[in-house]
Structure formats: C-alpha cells, structure tokens
Amino acid sequence: MFSSKSAQAVLPGEAAPMQTNTPVRPPRRPGRGPRMLAKKPARPGDTFGVPGQGSSVATSLVTVAAFIGLWFAATNLHWIKPLFLPSPQAVYAKFIFVATEGFANSTLAQHTGISLLRVFGAFLLACLSAIPVGVMMGVSRFARGAFDPPIEFYRPLPPLAYLPLIIIWFGIGEFSKVLLIYLAIFAPLAIAARAGVRSVSIEQIHAAYSMGASRTQVVLYVILKSAMPEIFTGMRIGIGVGWTTLVAAEMVASTSGLGFMVLNAAEFLASDVVIMGIIVIGFFALCFDLLMRYIERVLVPWKGKV
C-alpha cells in the first residue's frame, strides 16, 4: 500500500513513526487518464463549436441510399407507372444498351465526348476572359463603368431568351452552341471575381504599400490572392450554369450530345433514356465540382483562416 505522505510531524513525547522504503506515488493530475483514452487535439474552431464543422460524408451516403431505396420501392411496387418513372434496373439496362449499341446514331461515349468538349471549351474561354474582366471591375472604376451595365443587363436573362438572336447572327453551327454556354458562364464568373476583389481587407493593401509594393504587385500578390476563394466559388457556379445551358445549346440543330439525346428521347417518351442522360450529366457535373473543391484546398489553403 502506497503512503500518501512523505513525512509526518513528531510531537514531544511521541515515538517517531517507522520509516518505510515504499515509493510515494505522485498525485494524479486532474482529468489525466490513460494514454489510449486521451482526447485528440482539437482543431481550430472546435473548441467553441463553429456551426457546420465536421464531415458530412456519412449523412450524404445515407441520403443517397435513401433516395435509391425509395426509387426501387416506388417502381418495383408499381406505385408509379414505368412511363413516368422507370425502375433502376430498366435505366441500367438502357445505359448498357446505349453504351454499346448507341442512340440516335451515336454511342453514349460519343454523346458524352461532344458535350464535354462544348461545356469545358466554353468554361475555359470564360475563365480566360471573365476573371480578368472581374478583377479590372474591382480595381478600376472605369472598367466597372464599362463592363458592369451590359453584364448586369443580360445576366438575369435565361439563355433561351437570346438564343434566337445568336442563331440569327452566327447561324446554327458549333460556334453558336459554345457561345451560348460561354455567355451563361461569363456573367457569374465575372461578378464573383469582382466581389472577391472588393472583399480584400484594406489593411492588407496598406501594409503592402507601406513595404514598398507597386500597384501591379499589390494587384497580383495581395488582391488577386485574397480574391481566389470567391473566384473558385464563381467557377463552381459557372460550370453548373454551363451544364444547365447545355440542353438549350444542343437544341440548335444538333445531332449529338447529352442534351440532344435527352431531348430526342423525350420526344419518343423514352423516359429510361431521359433519366439515364440526366444521371450522366449530373455525374460529370458532380465530379467536376469535387475536382474544383480539391484544387481550391490545394491552391487556397488560407480560406477561412484569415
């Protein structure tokens, strides 16, 4: 048995207590438990419970599984007629058929390839032009006065509203389709870049000027870097708008593409092909969004920390 005291006081007339060689155990620190049960170090923000902190992967997987299970139940128990909602088995069978035999004189790979070329070609052109325009709108009042009125004028318009005008001006070739998608992506991307520039802290700009930075260096190394989170958000929104506009763009005398496949199948009430095309479009849009999130974490590690 361990002694709880290392020494005791001796009163007059009393015998000294017998000394033992038993080691004295130091008192345990409050809250200190076994190492294997020790808590992991808290990440920044965990201490005060930042709203939304933590992973949502498990919840997302459960949500997807619930939707698929409801789809199986509604179709296999004949709650909904196959004309309106085909079963997952029928959609998968049609996916295999279109991937091997084709639909509307093209296989699924050919439809997907031409759509990806249109969307990402327009997205690349929008990034090369909209981001510089947005940055100029944020740092120059003359650029803001020149570009802001036309962008704000056509931004709320749906692409189908100015699609006839594009056909009259540029015909029904491939250029009209890419231009329609490009215009749909350009506006949100330029506005996001402008908002990112305007959100830069004035203290950072003053600090850069006080250390001898020129105007160009402030724009490139302070303003542009601080605006990167907003620019990536605009890119994610823009590519989503681009996929939405794809169907409208491929209505223009098109003979291939995912949007054309969906519209052509809808004319013949082939709902299994329609749902299969929607799933393929959503899959590629989701993959690109996840890729943009990863690139943002790599290139903008300071997001939410400064």
Score class of each variant (00 low, 15 high):
Leu11Val: 04
Glu14Ser: 11
Pro17Thr: 07
Gln19Phe: 02
Thr22Asp: 02
Thr22Gln: 05
Pro26Glu: 11
Pro27Val: 10
Arg28Thr: 08
Arg32Gly: 04
Pro34Gln: 06
Arg35Ala: 15
Ala38Lys: 11
Pro41Met: 01
Pro41Gln: 07
Pro44Val: 11
Pro44Arg: 13
Gly45Phe: 09
Asp46Leu: 11
Asp46Ile: 00
Thr47Leu: 10
Phe48Glu: 05
Val50Leu: 15
Gln53Lys: 12
Ser56Met: 04
Val57Ile: 14
Val57Glu: 11
Thr59Ile: 06
Thr59Ser: 14
Val62Arg: 08
Ala74Cys: 07
Ala74Leu: 14
Leu77Phe: 15
His78Met: 02
Trp79Ser: 07
Lys81Met: 08
Pro82Gln: 00
Ser87Thr: 12
Val91Trp: 03
Lys94Cys: 03
Lys94Ile: 04
Phe97Asn: 12
Ala99Thr: 05
Thr100Met: 09
Phe103Ile: 00
Gly113Arg: 10
Arg118Gln: 14
Val119Phe: 03
Ala122Asn: 03
Leu124Gln: 03
Leu125Gln: 02
Leu125Val: 13
Leu128Met: 13
Ala130Phe: 03
Ile131His: 02
Ile131Gln: 04
Ile131Phe: 05
Met136Tyr: 09
Ser140Gln: 07
Arg141Gln: 13
Ala143Lys: 00
Phe147Gly: 05
Phe147Gln: 06
Asp148Glu: 15
